[in-house]
Amino acid sequence: MRTMTIDDLRTILVSCAGEEESADPRADISDVPFDDLGYDSLALMETGARIERDFGISLPDEVVAELRTPRALLDLINENLAGAR
């Protein structure tokens, strides 16, 4: 079964929406709210669309928009990946 790691997700986030200059590349961002990371709803839509395309899963915009942290998004992605097996 494929699973996504927090590092994988971070790479995709940065590629889709950049990151704050002050971001520490070694810090664990799993539970840092998207607001504090500088990611707004559009950044999440862009990231969600990229993951949908690359992994063949479905992440409805209205569900993604309600998520507050990378961990919550990662959990949603991995549930989907498990279901798409």
């Binding site: 590629s15 889709c16 929406a17 950049g18 990151e19 704050e20 200059e21 500088g38 559009l42 862009e46």
Partner: peptide, 8 residues
């Protein structure tokens, strides 16, 4: 330009 703004 801030990194956050480059993709957009």
């Amino acid at each position: 330009v801030p990194n956050r703004l480059l993709p957009q």
